[in-house]
């Protein structure tokens, strides 16, 4: 029976904390508005900070009433996740680390607990203790929710920046009428090769290109996976009516290709970008010749 009594007690405490948060929403929000987290995020007006604080107290009250004090997925948090995320992001912009933000969330605990204890005739009694414990657990969960939101935003930011970097790092250059080239620099993984393929095919359409040169001078190693990515790009360009030339195959890479038994099939390869351009020009019937020297015999 001991256990269920304890359960009943903590259930009672959770409900009591939920009630306290609802009744004292305004006072708690007023105190939080002076705390570092709210003060530094809501710089326009104090009222704004109080309103934001009220929303968080509301959410905590819902979570407490549902009895899921230590559950970061409790539906009650849903309403303030966005707001907490924006607050954390705002702190991050001014240079706070996620740990510092978490610390600022922890600071919200003390003013709330002080208010809570004041509700009881004996602030040090068992009931007050039980409720303070429940509130402590709840505030700990809030801290986790903020951290989780912050980290997830960090992941999204990194992923977004990674994609932007990929796009910046793969420029498609028009070399001549009907000839485009992509100088590939760095490792060619699946993500990169997707971006390369899309940019190259878009350029083929935009420039009405017949020839596309993939220059791998800046690719450190060619393994079978990289070769497969190259072959896919070549195949896709061909489906759109353009011929691909792979250039910049350094002797070391040529050796690796042979050594690994990679079959580049019917792909046209040239050792340098210049050779590839010459090939593409010749195929179109364009001949680049030195200008006849002045004074030469013009018979």
């Amino acid at each position: 029976m001991q256990v269920s009594e304890q359960d009943a007690a903590s259930e009672w405490a959770a409900r009591k904390v939920g009630e306290f948060l609802r009744v004292r929403q305004e006072q708690i929000a007023q105190r939080w508005a002076d705390a570092e987290l709210f003060r530094t995020v809501f710089t326009v007006s104090r009222d704004e900070a109080v309103e934001a604080g009220k929303a968080v107290v509301d959410a905590l009250s819902d979570v407490a009433s549902s009895g899921r004090l230590d559950d970061i997925t409790a539906p009650g948090f849903q309403t303030v996740r966005d707001q907490l995320g924006r607050m954390a992001a705002s702190r991050a912009r001014t240079g706070s680390t996620p740990a510092q933000v978490a610390g600022e969330v922890a600071e919200l605990h003390q003013p709330a607990v002080t208010l809570l204890r004041g509700e009881f005739p004996d602030p040090a009694g068992d009931q007050a203790q039980e409720c303070a414990l429940a509130l402590t657990v709840l505030m700990g969960t809030l801290r986790l929710v903020v951290m989780e939101t912050t980290l997830r935003q960090g992941d999204e930011l990194i992923a977004r920046q990674r994609l932007q970097l990929l796009e910046v790092a793969t420029p498609v250059i028009k070399l001549w009428d009907g000839i485009v080239a992509v100088p590939l620099i760095g490792t060619l993984d699946s993500a990169r090769s997707q971006v390369v393929m899309e940019s190259l095919l878009d350029a083929i359409v935009a420039e009405r290109a017949r020839y596309a040169i993939l220059d791998i001078t800046g690719v450190p190693t060619v393994d079978s996976l990289v070769a497969q990515h190259l072959m896919k790009t070549v195949a896709a360009a061909r489906l759109m009516g353009a011929e691909c030339i792979v250039s910049g195959i350094r002797p070391a890479i040529a050796q690796t290709i042979v050594h690994l038994g990679i079959d580049l099939g019917t792909v046209v390869t040239r050792s340098s970008l210049a050779d590839a351009l010459a090939y593409a020009l010749r195929q179109q019937g364009i001949v680049v010749a030195p200008r006849t020297p002045v004074g030469a015999n013009l018979s």
Partner: peptide
């Protein structure tokens, strides 16, 4: 939906 490549094993 993410345009970002999903982390999955490279298929061979």
């Amino acid at each position: 939906a993410t345009g970002l490549p999903h982390p999955r094993a490279e298929d061979g």
